[in-house]
């Protein structure tokens, strides 16, 4: 049952599976592409600030899928029917978290290579950037899932979730982008630790949120 659900969730959210799910990756590359036009083609500025731009682009790209992440399935009665089949909300949300991360984390990490070329990011920085995104995107996915579940029953939920994501993602951004400025991988440990905590918490928080959404 879990496997069937994961397959369905992936089919729904994975890039290029249709339904505009590839938008976050396109958006991510588009931001990186626009940046040199905005600040000028100075290689020094680009390579010094490019890593930070990639992090901001990653954070913003993580906001895009939130609207459809939970709300549409509540409307469909999808979680209700799974509940009747004995699956807990926490398990549904854990599966959703995996599917959400798989559908934007790895594609974003792959898209970092062309992005790094556009922003003249050098080898060691790229190395730190990739490690940071690998450690940080699960945390971003977890925050996104919690927010999407909490705001699912609100009318202006989509706009609100974007706003809520920004402050909550700050710690990941600070430590992730900070590693680039100091050229030191130590703070990536913090990113991984924050991510781990968020990933452990998200299924329970999101599960409680969709349970509470029924009681209105």
């Amino acid at each position: 049952m879990i496997g069937t659900l994961l397959k369905r969730d992936l089919a729904k959210f994975f890039p290029f599976a249709g339904g505009g799910a590839s938008l976050p990756v396109m958006f991510f590359i588009a931001v990186a592409m626009l940046y040199p036009f905005a600040v000028g083609p100075d290689v020094n500025i680009l390579s010094r600030t490019g890593g930070g731009v990639v992090w901001i682009a990653a954070l913003l790209a993580a906001i895009l899928p939130l609207e459809k992440l939970v709300a549409s399935d509540i409307e469909l009665g999808f979680f209700d029917q799974l509940r009747l089949r004995g699956l807990t909300e926490e398990m549904m949300m854990a599966v959703r978290l995996i599917a959400h991360w798989l559908s934007f984390g790895p594609p974003l990490i792959l898209a970092t290579f062309p992005t790094a070329a556009l922003l003249a990011i050098d080898g060691p920085t790229l190395h730190l950037l990739l490690l940071g995104l690998l450690a940080g995107t699960p945390g971003l996915a977890a925050i996104g899932l919690m927010i999407a579940a909490l705001t699912a029953s609100l009318r202006a939920g989509a706009a609100l979730s974007g706003l809520l994501m920004v402050p909550l993602a700050l710690p990941i951004l600070i430590f992730g982008a900070g590693a680039l400025a100091r050229q030191d991988g130590a703070s990536l440990g913090f990113v991984a630790a924050i991510s781990l905590g968020l990933v452990a918490m998200a299924p329970f928080a999101a599960g409680a949120a969709i349970k509470a959404a029924r009681e209105v």
């Binding site: 369905r8 729904k12 249709g18 469909l76 009665g77 999808f78 209700d80 029917q81 009747l84």
Partner: peptide
């Protein structure tokens, strides 16, 4: 015993 519910939301992916 187990319970099944049919309401106005049949939980079928519209796409």
């Amino acid at each position: 015993g187990e319970l099944g519910l049919l309401d106005e939301r049949p939980a079928l992916d519209p796409d």
